Each structure stands twice: as C-alpha cells, then as structure tokens.
Computed example of a mutant assay.
Amino acid sequence: MLKQILTPFLMTALLFSLVFCGPSEETKEIQGKAKQIIGALPEKMPGSENDSEKLISLGKKLYFEKKLSMNESQSCNSCHNIEGKSAGVDNLPTSPGAFGKNGDRNSPTVLNAGFHFVQFWDGRAADLKAQAKGPILNPVEMAMPSEKEVLKRINEDAEYPKLFAEAFPNDKAPVTYDNLAGAIAAFERTLVTPSRFDDFVKGDFKAMSKAEQEGFKSFLAAGCTSCHSGNLLGGNSYRKVGLVNEYKTEDLGRFNVTKKPEDKFVFKVPSLRNITLTGPYFHDGKIATIEEAVQKMAYHQLGINLSEEETKKIVLFLGTLADKNRAN
C-alpha cells in the first residue's frame, strides 16, 4: 500500500523537477562557453539590407536557370542543391559539369556562404557576387563561351528583360553580367540556416541534449576551435591542410591564386554549419563519412588520434549545427 502511494508521489515530484527546475550549473557553464566562443548565427547576411524583393526574386529565378549553361543542362542548383532538405550541395565527391567532365574540387555548400570572408576553397572570389560570375564561364562547369553570349540568351527570353528592369529600376541598361551576378548573390543572401545550437546559445537550454552538450565539450577539448571558430565555426581563415601530419593531395590550393610558396596546400577553413548534411568531405571530396572526417582532421591538423567514443561525441554536437528545416 505504501509503495502504491509513494510511486505516484515520486513520479509527480520528478515531473515537477523536470518542468519547473532550471538548467544545471554545468549546462549553464556549457551554454556560456558556446555563447562566448562561438555565438549565434546572425539572422541576416551582410548586404541583405539593400536587397529588394524583386531583386531576390530575379536572383532565385537565375539560380535555377539552365539557360546559363552552354547546353542548357546545368544551373547553380545543379551543384548547390537547395531544394527540399538538400543542404546546398550535390553530395558528390566532385561535380559533373555541362558536358559531363568533373571539376577538381568538392562543391561547398551555398548555405550561409555570404557570411564567409571569401568564396571558393582557394578564396579567389571576394564575395558572393564575384563567385557567381565564375562557374557560368568556367569551361568545365557551365561552359558558356562569353558574357556576351550569356546576355544574348537573357535578352532573347520573354521574361528576363522586364524582370531585370524591375530589379534594377535606376539602370538605363539593366541587363548586364554584373547585375546578373548581383541578383544571384541577393538570393543567396537569404539562405541563412538557424540551428538548435543557436537556440541553445540564445538561452533555450533544452535545445541540446546532455550528450550533445558533452560533444561540445569534447569539441573544445580536442582543440577544434583553433580553426573552426566564430559563429560559422570556420569560413573566416585559411589553413594548410596537413598542418601537423601530411595530407596527400596534388591540389596546391591557394598557391594557384597567389603563387606564394607559403600558400601551397592552403585552403579556406570550411564552416561546420550543416556539416553533417554536406558530405563527402574535404576539398577533394575523398572522405566519405563525417566520423572519418572528424578523425582525419584531428590527426592531420592537430596531431591527435581521437577514440571512437570521442569521435561519436563530437559528431553528436556537429548535428546540432544543422538547419532545423533540413535536419532529419
């Protein structure tokens, strides 16, 4: 009889403690570190305050436009798929272009790309607008022969001349290659992906499980923030791949842009936002799983060998960085 009385009482007490008691001191400490060391992702990208609805609408149409490739087989979305739960990539090691030949590097996600300090793995484009101009004229990617041919197709279209005029009302001749790239960039600036981690940083202590919080502690303890720092957890610096232990690659990285010997095998540090959704990994796309990527980065960049348990913890944390609308 006593057991029958106490059991409902204990259950009620436990439920009360879960609902009304605040987070533990340890959770508060972890949240404090997450806020201080990483921070929440801003709600808007730099430059978006000047983007009109018509400019963004034009940019979205152009982002999916296959007329921007020579044989009308490719659009920006072909390699940087944002439809459905896709995370701004094609999930291939390297991407096939208009005529089937693959590029040399893994296609990075377009999600949150406007927060990055430069674009492309080697930083050869300063911003989204400069980046948008490249693939269209790249002979392997979209393979258009010239800006002139691109604009010819746009001007011959039944809709685009009017849409450009509406998006660039102050331009006498609005259909330009610069404006085309600017419109695509404006649309890409809308691709901001808030995550559960951001909710946690902002004070929702239930947004991350205890195991995920432990994963964040392991992430810090391993020294991952020496490269993956700031609210993007990357995307704000260059590093040599194989900094401590050699990573074999023939790609010279940023050296191809600067021709400086010290830039050999140097690449932009990728953001870890949505990283669990964007495999395969590294500039060459040769690492198939997120677990392997975490272990290899620890070895090649930090000189440490993570255990399977430590790796699993870190991967759990990385899952909290995924877009809430795209995460499974």
Rank of each mutant, 00 (worst) to 15 (best):
A185R: 05
P23R: 11
Q31Y: 01
A34T: 03
V140G: 05
L137C: 09
E149T: 14
L163A: 05
D127R: 12
L18R: 13
K85S: 13
T193I: 03
E65P: 00
A322T: 00
F20L: 14
L14K: 02
M45W: 10
A13W: 07
N236W: 04
G242Y: 15
G279R: 03
G223H: 15
N155R: 15
K259I: 07
F200M: 03
V257H: 06
S107E: 13
I304A: 09
G303R: 12
E188Q: 04
T193Q: 03
R326W: 09
E310A: 15
I56P: 07
D127A: 14
R124S: 13
T94V: 04
N305K: 14
A186K: 12
N256P: 11
S86R: 02
D104Q: 13
F164I: 11
P139S: 10
E159H: 09
P280R: 09
I154D: 05
M208L: 13
I82M: 11
Y238I: 11
E141A: 02
K152N: 12
E141M: 01
W121A: 08
F187G: 08
Q36E: 09
G234K: 01
G84I: 06
G234L: 01
V110T: 15
Y299V: 04
A298G: 08
E49G: 00
F120N: 15
A125T: 15
T276R: 01
K313C: 02
L252N: 10
I154P: 07
S146G: 04
N305D: 11
Y63E: 05
P161I: 13
E246M: 11
V89N: 08
F197Y: 13
G134I: 07
T276P: 02
K60N: 10
I287P: 02
C21D: 09
A293E: 02
K66Q: 08
N231I: 01
G253N: 06
G47P: 04
K210P: 14
F200D: 00
K324L: 02
A165D: 14
L68T: 06
G303V: 08
D104T: 14
K206I: 08
P46Y: 09
A181Y: 03
K61M: 05
C76D: 03
P139A: 10
